[in-house]
Design a protein around this nucleic acid. Sequence first.
DNA 1: GTCAATATGGAATTTACGTTCTATATTACT
DNA 2: AGTAATATAGAACGTAAATTCCATATTGAC
Lengths: 284, 284
Amino acid sequence: MPMPETTNDVPQDFETLKAVILERKAQLPKRLKQVAAYSLDNPDEIAFGTAASIATSADVQPSTLVRFAQHFGFEGFSSLQQIFRARLRERTPGYEERLKALRQNDHNNLESGSIFNGFVAAAHRSLENIATSVDPHSFERAVDILAKANTIYLIAKRRSYPISSYMAYAFGKLKVKYQHVGTAAGIDDDMLAMANREDAAFAVSFSPYASESANQARLLANRKVPVVSLTDSAFSPLAESSKVWFELVEADHAGFRSLSASMAFAMALTVAIAEKRRRIAEGE
Amino acid sequence: MPMPETTNDVPQDFETLKAVILERKAQLPKRLKQVAAYSLDNPDEIAFGTAASIATSADVQPSTLVRFAQHFGFEGFSSLQQIFRARLRERTPGYEERLKALRQNDHNNLESGSIFNGFVAAAHRSLENIATSVDPHSFERAVDILAKANTIYLIAKRRSYPISSYMAYAFGKLKVKYQHVGTAAGIDDDMLAMANREDAAFAVSFSPYASESANQARLLANRKVPVVSLTDSAFSPLAESSKVWFELVEADHAGFRSLSASMAFAMALTVAIAEKRRRIAEGE
DNA sequence: GTCAATATGGAATTTACGTTCTATATTACT
DNA sequence: AGTAATATAGAACGTAAATTCCATATTGAC
């Protein structure tokens, strides 16, 4: 070894390591880049796993992990792993302290910080609320109705639209037949005209209610299409047309509501439906 | 062995283990007591250290650690160590209690209940994560950039689309000028052609990345339009085109992610932008 | 298109680790 | 105090994990 290696430039903490990896990721060969991405996306896995287990889940050879580590100046994979472990050690929370830190983090010292914290807090409250306000049996019934449907019609306008569009995306991935009602106004009614009692609908509407959604739900209900709905009030015009309905009040920050809890609900419903369909399909 | 050992009472989580250790601490022989004290005082060491290293720093023999573990019903030291590791993995303040509360509601007695609980829990985890992973100063910068923009271009496809569509809705209500890019593919490029350095863009893309979004962001960046982005990985192709970017990993339930934390983030950003615009308008 | 340089997969090797075993010490009981 | 029961230290063992090595594949330069 002609030149004494200057081992000084080996990252000693996670943040530096992350920065270095990001800096050089573009020039990394294929497999090493793969490891780079995996390691930053799943730091906990690197910290706890063994070289073999990590290699499997990152879809590379164990030796690649060693090469990766050496590429960044570490002696071997193990010494790189220490960085990932140290990261977890230092981030020692201590229950109370962590919460306090959250409240006192410098988000609050900055102009927009309180807004950020406000919405995170509101989302928390919403979620804490959701478990109590959603009746398990109703949920089960809703899943049942929608799982048995031939095609699921998703009805949502305006503020509720993001929810149905996410469900649409997920249904697509999960191979569940659906129709997304809520885009171009003219087409909607033609779509709904095709619905029959073998189908079902899921309608979402928050105050101020889009009267269109309520009308469409009523239309379907009259034609014996079972409707499940999600609203923020028992007085929602949707309720009367629905076989099952859920009342879910999102907490607000300064009058603005995010959709955090609704999104969790929507996703749970979506996956539960897909799961039940799978079971129905297998069972028969 | 006359009586089949009921191995069911082996602690499976850290809190129970801690309780059991404390309960029996008094009757423990000298060396085992020593280990008991050490393990509760230095749980992180137990989690990451090797039997040998722990033994040294607790001033006992490695075999003592094994006996200690077996004393509490574990097969060996390694299985006891798992408990200490799990603790670090799941560590989230208040998380345990909330989950316990969740487990005890009757959602679990029903088929779809665990799915529901799973998503609520995942959303909680996401939110607990968000406060630490979003840097306040970056947030401030992002708000600044977007508040000064003439028109805000919202770029999002597929899984990210619900987020931008909610922001679009809110911007509309808040009278912030925006263009929603992400609907009909043909029109998009014409829209973007009108953007100049007085404008700004907010791009959202989660893995698997829609290459279209990345391209559009790059296009804008090349034309000096400042881009702020939200992704789930530092490796996102969006990052390189962005003046400010946020890495926000949604926790998943059984591989499915909801958008709870992203929604809270989006809403916070939206309102912060509107608020800042109001101040800018008033101040001049 | 050829050749050199670099990257990769997978087996071989070696290191290090947890566990077991046994002789010795300590404690508890009569 | 004497003896049985239990606890402990430390070495020995077997295994599992990290690392190294080499043949093959891929990339980049001329």
